Simulated scan of single mutants.
Amino acid sequence: MSETRILTLVGSLRAGSINRQLAEAAVQTAPDGVDISIYEGLAEIPFYNEDLDVAGSVPAQAESLRAAVAAADAVLLLTPEYNGTLPAVLKNVIDWASRPYGTGAIKGKPVAVVSASISPNAAAWAHGDTVKSVGIAGGVVVEAATAQFATIGERFGQTHPAQDAEALTQLGATVHQLVAAVESARVNA
């Protein structure tokens, strides 16, 4: 079996982001043969604009993102909830990865969505909107790989999610299901 590469994209740019910490914890759950990397530089990617998306002149940051998504076997998205939906930075990533329409880097790629919020609803609205956007963009949302974390300010206020056994179990299950989806796609290819 070849190594499975999972690209992780975090929808929060804040330095102390608990969503970022959850991504770091997910990296720790990677079993042998699975490489999970966290993409850096989402803040530098310009907002999607079809006028910028012209062959030969696509912004380097967007090309880099597309190449990283294309090189990955699967994508793990972590989203907070901003004003009842996913943050603009994550939507922008999905937009760039979905183009050119019908052949974008995310097309046919297994995707897992993890949501986390300070509210008790566990960013359910952002989660749903992210799943919807990824599906329309052509990604294959792996429903079994879903994880949602509520009241994260209280739960992870004093400890990193990597020190929370239950969080590691949930994230490990998410990674396991995403890897299973990749293996299933390889067998059916």
Rank of each mutant, 00 (worst) to 15 (best):
R20V: 02
D51L: 03
H176E: 13
L13C: 07
I36W: 07
A165I: 06
Y48H: 07
V75F: 06
I36F: 06
G128T: 12
G135S: 15
E183H: 12
G16A: 11
E50S: 13
V10F: 09
G139L: 04
T151Y: 01
A71N: 12
I38H: 02
T159C: 01
D95F: 00
A88D: 11
N19T: 13
E81V: 03
A60F: 04
T151N: 13
V27R: 15
G16M: 09
A60V: 11
L178T: 10
T151I: 13
E183Q: 15
N83M: 10
A165T: 14
L77G: 08
P46S: 03
A167R: 12
V142P: 00
G104C: 06
P59Y: 08
Q177E: 14
A70W: 04
A97E: 01
G138L: 05
D164Y: 10
N188M: 09
V175C: 10
A68P: 02
A15N: 10
N121P: 00
P161D: 07
P80S: 11
I106C: 01
G108M: 05
T146D: 10
N49I: 00
K107W: 08
Y48N: 02
G56F: 07
N83Y: 11
G41A: 06
P80Q: 12
V75P: 07
L7M: 12
T85R: 11
A165M: 02
V89T: 14
W96V: 00
